[in-house]
Design a protein around this nucleic acid. Structure first.
Length: 307
DNA sequence: CGATTTTGACCAGCGC
DNA sequence: GCGCTGGTCAAAATCG
């Protein structure tokens, strides 16, 4: 798969890496490692943040001091990290790495929504698709969580549609699809062979509907109210203000300034207000920070596809 | 009985 | 062309 993605990578994108240790439904001390994958390539810039040793909240995550970032690496010399999850250096740290073809490759994205569904269907059915046009994947967002259970509760309902043995890993990879009719979001779940205590979950696509299951006050008995983890059922959830602070932090470190234009979207295209606006767009009650409990709650709009 | 999971088969893409 | 691998399909089994 790496190969495939590498092939699809035309514009290297950044790899967002956050780190945190947060309480989740699956573990009282979950390592949180997220990776937003992209087809056009990725660049480890967020992981350069080296964020670690955070208090158990995403909010803190974006405010905690970070270690000095390593010198920016030219995208051209970066390895293919489309599937790399940037495991944290420390046991308690984790990372969110992101890269998305779609994030930057908007044009193709724009034309996707309606026609893509059909395209995908056709693909699956008879697959008489043209070779030239490789399948454009949805933005993918992966994270690593220290958990004993493979399938983590994230507020949505999933139907397992496949399972495959993973090369060089004793653990199988499971494929899930959102059960909602019009929602084509998929996710892969696999246990890390390096660290069997961690689960790698990769989301692909955007939910086109609100979370059908939204236990907002607690997850598996773990209340989230006490912390800043204001939004909800899953570690994916991120309050608006966090997103904003995230932006600021990035600005402070000026990581993006050293990135190629295609990677510089965070500093050049996104402003705090744009984040806010996006959030408002997603929520009817901005002040209350409504989340759907998934990607859409954490991934900036520019990294997602607009409907 | 409908929804979900399991699992073998199938297909596409890729490297050799 | 062949083999490998990731991803998906779909029938059967299982679950609630």
């Amino acid at each position: 798969m790496e190969k495939k993605e590498a092939m699809e990578m035309e514009n290297p994108l950044g790899v967002m890496t956050f780190s945190d240790q947060i309480p989740t439904s699956f573990s009282s001390s979950s390592v949180f490692d997220m990776s937003y994958e992209g087809e056009k390539g990725s660049l480890g810039f967020m992981d350069l943040l080296g964020i670690q040793d955070f208090s158990p909240s995403l909010f803190d995550l974006f405010h905690a001091p970070s270690v000095p970032p390593p010198p920016p690496t030219p995208s051209s010399t970066l390895p293919d990290t489309s599937e790399v999850l940037n495991f944290p250096a420390t046991p308690n740290s984790s990372s969110i790495s992101s890269s998305s073809t779609e994030a930057v490759n908007d044009e193709q994205q724009q034309t996707k929504p309606a026609e893509e569904e059909e395209d995908e269907k056709a693909k699956k059915q008879s697959k008489p698709k043209k070779k030239k046009e490789k399948r454009q994947r949805e933005p993918r967002f992966a994270f690593v969580t220290k958990s004993e259970v493979d399938h983590l509760e994230d507020g949505y309902r999933w139907r397992k549609y496949g399972q495959k043995a993973v090369k060089n890993s004793p653990f199988p990879r499971s494929y899930y699809r959102c059960t909602s009719a019009s929602c084509g979001v998929k996710k892969r779940v696999e246990r890390s062979s390096d660290d069997p205590t961690t689960v790698v979950t990769t989301y692909e696509g955007q939910h086109t509907h609100p979370s059908p299951v939204m236990p907002r006050r607690s997850v598996a008995g773990i209340s989230l109210d006490s912390g800043n983890f204001a939004a909800s059922t899953t570690s994916f959830t991120m309050p608006m203000h966090i997103t904003q602070s995230h932006y600021h932090q990035q600005q402070q470190h000026s990581y993006f300034q050293n990135l190629p234009p295609s990677l510089n979207f965070m500093s050049s295209t996104i402003s705090p207000s744009s984040f806010l606006q996006e959030r408002r767009f997603c929520t009817s009650t901005p002040s209350l920070i409504r989340d759907h409990g998934l990607l859409q709650d954490i991934v900036p709009s520019v990294m997602r596809k607009e409907e």
